[in-house]
Design a protein around this nucleic acid. Structure first.
Length: 569
RNA sequence: CGGGACGUGGCGCAGUCUGGUUAGCGUACUUGACUGGGGGUCAAGUGGUCGGAGGUUCAAAUCCUCUCGUCCCGACCA
């Protein structure tokens, strides 16, 4: 391609509304433009990158027997009502009506549509397993879209669904899919981790997330340096502390005045105790009303773990208003003693003796609280967030590390959730009807590209890996007016195209500096600079974007080495 | 959903508090000349319903009301 014929509107300054590097750079490089909150247009250069990600995904999906389909983005409400998600999905589901007033939604995901096809078209175990995938635009009306293409409302996603006759087969495909995902992200040149993730209400222990390590990530990943254990912090198990509490006598329950002391630090400081002797009572709300979670003062509650322990549909922090209305208790002084709602305690809390809690009375706390004697606990379990430095629950001598990550892929075993709700049956070899078992697997295409920028950039701009770069090489004439330079560039350009190199010819009339700045900004891996002095001496300059290292190569003989240089990057 | 900020040529901003020439700067864009190895110089230009609606006033980018849009923070530490 010729630069002069391409729409690559690069900018010198970052847009004022961009926060993260990938957003800033993708706008500056003329790859994307915002149309509305969380909705972006993709320009030619950006599309080239997305297409490269797509190609890698297609190759890996096809390799494990995936068949590509293309499903509608607008879906009838009936299908969603059948799966019960019409009511359940909430405001993230963008609903619309057609001219006949029929209800539709813009698909945020496609379990319903694909299950509808499969239940109609597949009847026999002989046709299973079936693995179908598509690369298509999704819309999720996020509360708060941000970070450009990384968390948009409209975004490009590869979603795959698999249908199976039995669990072993599902498991097999799940593992192949995990491997395929691993291959995709490796080929995209990303540093990532495959981590256990929360499977939510879907059930089953099989869900893994693929997280690209980056400070701008919204996920927290906990992993062990010594063994292979890695999981989303939401899910990471905490290993019970083995230190036995001193066997002091049990103190009496005593009310103490703690005027104005609400936070753990304030209370512990005021009473001259360690944070570990305080128990925090956190009020949350789910579909059945308020619940309380107890964790030690130096710990934090993990609501995902609590939600899983309770087995409720949803769980959110209770609003102060709700607490006032339903319990009439003063925030800051709430405690589990005589608290008339379900109380769930972290396992560490059950080990404590003589601890402090709120007394459900303004400016008052209890001291000498005993777990067994004073509290009515609905259930105890692992409820706390892991912290960096916590012991690994798996290998016993490693420590947790916590890093931020961008979720670029997620795979699930769905079981029969959808096949049951939507009656997707098949006949087995005995002629008996069975429910199909399903898996679903997603990759954020744009997010993968953005994650790559987050991981690979410098002060000059983006540094694409060869596999995702919009072009593999760019030819930069120092002066495009001089015929000998121009002819040499045209010749190199044609030869590289013939050799199958994805090459860009910067045929603009601008000065060298402009071209080099742009080449660095858009991050093309190899720059071929053709200047008058070098050319006279029979040389061209080949510069690597990433390292900024530059070497002279003989011209014209050296042209044929370029594909090899690219391979070596 | 709660809180905060912002909206002025394509992009980045000043002007708004304290109303008053023809709305300004940088950059980009067009034309010409010079220049030609890291966003060059000079000259002449193009481009603006100051987000929108209503109001106050002799006079509104500026004051008031409403509205739309965009961004940020928060929505577990009781």
């Amino acid at each position: 391609m010729r630069y002069s014929k391409l729409l690559i509107p690069t900018l010198k300054e970052s847009p004022a509304d961009a926060e993260v590097v990938s957003h800033k750079l993708m706008v500056r490089a003329g790859m994307i433009r915002q149309l509305a909150a969380g909705i972006y247009s993709v320009l030619p250069l950006g599309l080239r990158v997305l297409k490269k990600v797509e190609t890698i995904i297609r190759e890996e999906m096809n390799k494990i027997g995936g068949q590509e389909v293309f499903l509608p983005s607008i879906q009838p409400a009936e299908l969603w009502q059948e799966s019960k998600r019409w009511d359940f999905y909430g405001k993230e589901l963008l609903r619309l009506k057609d001219r006949h007033d029929r209800e539709f939604c813009y698909g945020p995901t496609h379990e319903e549509v694909i299950t509808d096809i499969i239940r109609k078209e597949i009847k026999s175990y002989r046709q299973l397993p079936a693995i179908l995938y598509q690369i298509q635009t999704k819309f999720r009306d996020e509360v708060r879209p941000r970070f450009g293409i990384m968390r948009g409302r409209e975004f490009l996603m590869k979603d795959a669904y698999s249908f199976h006759a039995d669990e072993a087969d599902t498991q097999k495909t799940y593992e192949q899919m995990a491997q395929a995902y691993s291959n995709v992200f490796t080929r995209c040149g990303l540093e990532f981790k495959q981590v256990q993730a929360d499977s939510g209400t879907i059930g089953g222990s099989f869900s893994h997330e693929f997280a690209v390590l980056a400070d701008s990530g919204e996920d927290e990943i906990g992993f062990c340096e010594k063994c292979s254990y890695a999981s989303n912090v939401e899910l990471a198990e905490s290993r019970p502390e083995s230190n036995t509490t001193p066997s002091d006598g049990e103190e009496e329950l005593k009310q103490v005045l703690t005027p104005g002391k609400k936070s753990v630090e304030e209370v512990s400081g005021f009473l001259g105790l360690s944070d570990k002797q305080i128990v925090k009572t956190i009020l949350l709300e789910n579909e059945n009303g308020l619940v309380a979670g107890l964790v030690r003062g130096d710990h934090e509650i993990n609501t995902v773990k609590l939600k899983n322990l309770i087995g409720c549909e949803w769980l959110l922090p209770a609003a102060e208003k709700t607490i006032q209305e339903k319990l009439g208790l003063p925030c800051g002084y709430i405690g589990p003693v005589n608290l008339d709602i379900p109380v769930y305690a972290d396992q560490e809390v059950s080990q404590l003796k003589n601890f402090v809690t709120g007394a459900n009375k303004a400016d008052t706390h209890f001291t000498g609280v005993q777990f067994q004697r004073d509290l009515k606990i609905t259930q105890s379990g692992d409820l706390r967030r892991i912290l960096p430095g916590d012991p690994c629950p798996k290998c016993k001598d490693g420590e947790y590390q916590v890093k931020r990550g961008i979720e670029v892929g997620h795979i699930f075993i769905l079981g029969t959730k959808y096949s049951e709700a939507m009656k997707a049956h098949y006949l087995d070899s005995h002629g008996k009807e069975n429910l199909m078992i399903m898996g679903c697997y997603g990759i954020g295409v744009g997010r993968t590209a953005a994650a790559s920028v987050e991981q690979n950039h410098d002060e000059k701009g983006m540094v694409w890996p060869l596999s995702l770069a919009p072009f593999e090489a760019v030819i930069i004439p120092v002066n495009f007016k001089k015929d000998d330079l121009k002819n040499a560039c045209e010749s190199i350009y044609n030869q590289l195209i013939d050799m199958g190199v994805d090459v860009l010819l910067d045929d603009r009339q601008d000065r060298l500096g402009v071209k080099l700045k742009d080449a660095d900004l858009i991050g093309i891996p190899l720059q071929i600079i053709v200047g008058p002095k070098n050319l006279e001496e029979g040389n061209i300059e080949i510069k690597v974007r990433k390292t900024q290292e530059s070497r002279l190569h003989p011209y014209p003989e050296g042209i044929k080495d370029i594909p090899n240089i690219l391979k070596g990057l």
